[in-house]
Write a protein that binds this DNA or RNA. Sequence first.
DNA 1: AACCAATGACAAACACGCTTTACATAACGG
DNA 2: CCGTTATGTAAAGCGTGTTTGTCATTGGTT
Lengths: 64, 64
Amino acid sequence: MKNRLKVLRAERDWSQQDLATRLEVSRQSVNAIETGRYDPSLPLAFRIADVFGLAIEDIFLRGE
Amino acid sequence: MKNRLKVLRAERDWSQQDLATRLEVSRQSVNAIETGRYDPSLPLAFRIADVFGLAIEDIFLRGE
DNA sequence: AACCAATGACAAACACGCTTTACATAACGG
DNA sequence: CCGTTATGTAAAGCGTGTTTGTCATTGGTT
């Protein structure tokens, strides 16, 4: 499942560690999700959406 | 994570098995999600949203 | 009463999400 | 050159998501 995390981080000038801290997950989790190695759980997806102030559908893309 | 699956099924008069078939998952998965025993994966949450023609945020509730 | 559909729940097994620890690389400022 | 920051990846371990199989209960039908 593709996502726009890298771009959204860049827009805010956040490192993977910055985002991980805000989400209260490990940096490796952010990296793994961002590089598509796995998808976040639904609760984590909600936290990600909250951190960026967007809907889940605006961050994670249905394609593939 | 609370959800509105039971109501959404009722509105459409679908059994848990009907929904499971549309989602291509087991009936037990639908039942477990519906009764709150666990949350679906993000890809499954997207399929659920698609089946009902709603946004994930309109089916799964942030509270608790 | 007997039957069947729908629902809820449990167990065992396997795949996946997420953790920590660790290592490697590239880019930057002293 | 050295130290620091950012990123990608890997292994081991734990908890969760999903499956198949099974059982019990409830409500409706015949």
